Amino acid sequence: MTFLQPLRRLSDIVNQAAILVCVACVLTMLGISFTAFVYKLATGNTLSWTYSLARLFLPWIGFLSMTISLRYGEHVAMTLLVRSLPRVLTVVAATLCMLVIGLFGGLLLWYGWGYFEGTRQVYMVSDQIQISGKFTAIVVPVSGAIILLHLVQGFDLLEHFIDDDTVIDELIETADVEKRP
């Protein structure tokens, strides 16, 4: 499995980049909204383009957040049910789950790329600001590719194999280390 190590590192790097892009999108949205607020306070008028421009970042936040939550095992899972199964059936359920995740990522990539290529609309944010629909459409195949890349993490994406006692022991150990002078 050493051939997967570079891909796993790449998955971690891409995940960190996705986190940075999400933070940048949220900060940009806040900046646009704050600008509109300050402008309204200063002049009494509103900027018509602020809402439309800020809204263009929502697909980026939504789709990239989906890939980030997948990487950390925070996706919808039936952990309690799966953990009550015998070990063999747990592996079968986890394998099926990974296949469904892979299928979803593949569909996002395949159909998302077609959606991106076919996008012709231009968002009229204002008379001067026009943004191509490709800006928001590209996030669909990008998120599909990230999901497929995260699959190299294997069963680490799923909570089914996490030993609760080990996690609790690690948390206690971390808390003890932090309390020491």
Rank of each mutant, 00 (worst) to 15 (best):
M1F: 03
F3S: 13
F3C: 07
N15Q: 10
N15Y: 12
A18C: 13
I19C: 05
L20G: 14
L20S: 11
V23N: 00
C25G: 01
L30M: 15
L30Y: 09
G31N: 07
I32E: 06
K40A: 15
L41W: 14
A42K: 15
A42T: 09
T43Q: 10
W49R: 08
S52N: 14
L53N: 00
R55C: 06
I61N: 05
I61R: 03
G62V: 12
M66L: 15
M66P: 07
T67M: 08
S69M: 15
S69A: 15
L70Q: 08
L70E: 05
Y72G: 03
V76E: 02
A77M: 15
M78W: 13
R83G: 00
P86F: 04
R87L: 09
L89E: 09
T90E: 15
A94I: 02
T95M: 12
L96T: 12
C97F: 04
V100L: 14
I101H: 06
I101A: 01
W110S: 04
G114M: 08
Y115N: 13
Q121N: 12
V125L: 10
D127K: 10
Q128R: 13
I129F: 06
Q130E: 14
I131L: 12
G133A: 08
I138T: 00
I138E: 03
V139L: 02
V140E: 00
A145P: 07
I147H: 01
L149V: 01
V152E: 03
V152L: 08
G154E: 03
L157C: 03
E159I: 00
H160I: 13
F161M: 01
V167E: 10
D169W: 04
I172D: 02
A175H: 02
V177I: 12
K179Y: 05
K179A: 01
